[in-house]
Nucleic acid binder design. Sequence first.
DNA 1: CCCGGCATCCACCGATCGGTTGATGTCGTG
DNA 2: CACGACATCAACCGATCGGTGGATGCCGGG
Lengths: 204, 204
Amino acid sequence: MRLRLLIADDHPIVRDGLRAALGGEPDMEVVGEAADGAQAVRLAAELRPDVVLMDLRMPGMDGVSAIRELSGTGPRVLVLTTFDTDVLPALEAGASGYLLKDAPPDELVRAVRATHEGETVLAPSVAGRLASDLRRPTRGRLSKRELEVLRLVAGGATNKEAAAELFISEASVKTHLLHVYAKLDVRDRASAVAEAYRRGLLNG
Amino acid sequence: MRLRLLIADDHPIVRDGLRAALGGEPDMEVVGEAADGAQAVRLAAELRPDVVLMDLRMPGMDGVSAIRELSGTGPRVLVLTTFDTDVLPALEAGASGYLLKDAPPDELVRAVRATHEGETVLAPSVAGRLASDLRRPTRGRLSKRELEVLRLVAGGATNKEAAAELFISEASVKTHLLHVYAKLDVRDRASAVAEAYRRGLLNG
DNA sequence: CCCGGCATCCACCGATCGGTTGATGTCGTG
DNA sequence: CACGACATCAACCGATCGGTGGATGCCGGG
């Protein structure tokens, strides 16, 4: 029985590359390709693959959401993306591994097999990032409300405007922001926005 | 005589995908692969390709720098990247075209041929972005000094600290920032930092 | 059950910021 | 050469922000 593989990536060229790198292996078979998260979920239900190779940033349904939906339905999910942010969300959603796209093909092949065996595969740089994330249990992790406030501030809102938008008092906005500063280890709103972008907390 | 092609991309998987998409064409030949800008320049001098497929974000030498070095030495450069920012810098550096990685392979093949013929190929979304960039000759384009100030502000500097860092007066810092606000169409430093990140003006 | 995180609110103060207006000099391009 | 973009500086004012030091209530994990 060959290892059944589903590829989910919005770039046709990357899908071609993955086919080229993995299709040649005698013990693997690419049974399908998806261009976004929703399609990946549908195809996984239909094709019952053993392993799903999943990009995270895709149009339509997010990769992390797709992982969450796939979680427990059978296939193991190996994340293959360009960025080493999003590690924690992906693993929390149920990913079995996290590789970066600059990985050489043979490492990718080994990772797919290892994932199928039930191992958890992390790219070296990803492992380091994960460790540093976990070292600060609360720090760096913004609450929902804090993120909402920060997003408004990044959009140019004053404290007063953000308060009106969220139906809370200006004092609460200030408190939330102070917490944000402490968590991101910055002193003001401008550097908070910068740090949030660096950590991938604000959209991109 | 077949069309000689050089691929420059730091992701092995993408290179495989490009080989798969282009290598099958009878009138094309992939003569080399580079994993960063410097290597691309070296290989271009050695292999004399007709067209270079160039990613922009690569470790070591930047894609734009590589294009600048290649400019006028023979090969035409077709940019193939994930982001629709960096269009203007790439074209100014001498690129003959700008495609996005979500393009279907057949479009890519046509674009390579068109580039070889001397045409300028722009992805639709890229064309739109370019137009909106050009509509504001000055707007959106930050001067060197303005960018320095904004970078310091993003790092948490107050106006006074930024002034000390740059050996100018606080008043000058304020003026620079006001110009930044006008160009980015924002009201304060926080949203300026946010907008700069969205436009890819601050590192990445 | 208690502690910590979260969300909400209040008051006060000094520091900082943004807006405005105006000025000088350089530089590159048309 | 004239024009615009750039870089530099000044003074003033009101608005906003960040810091401090609280307070309350809810909830979930150990």
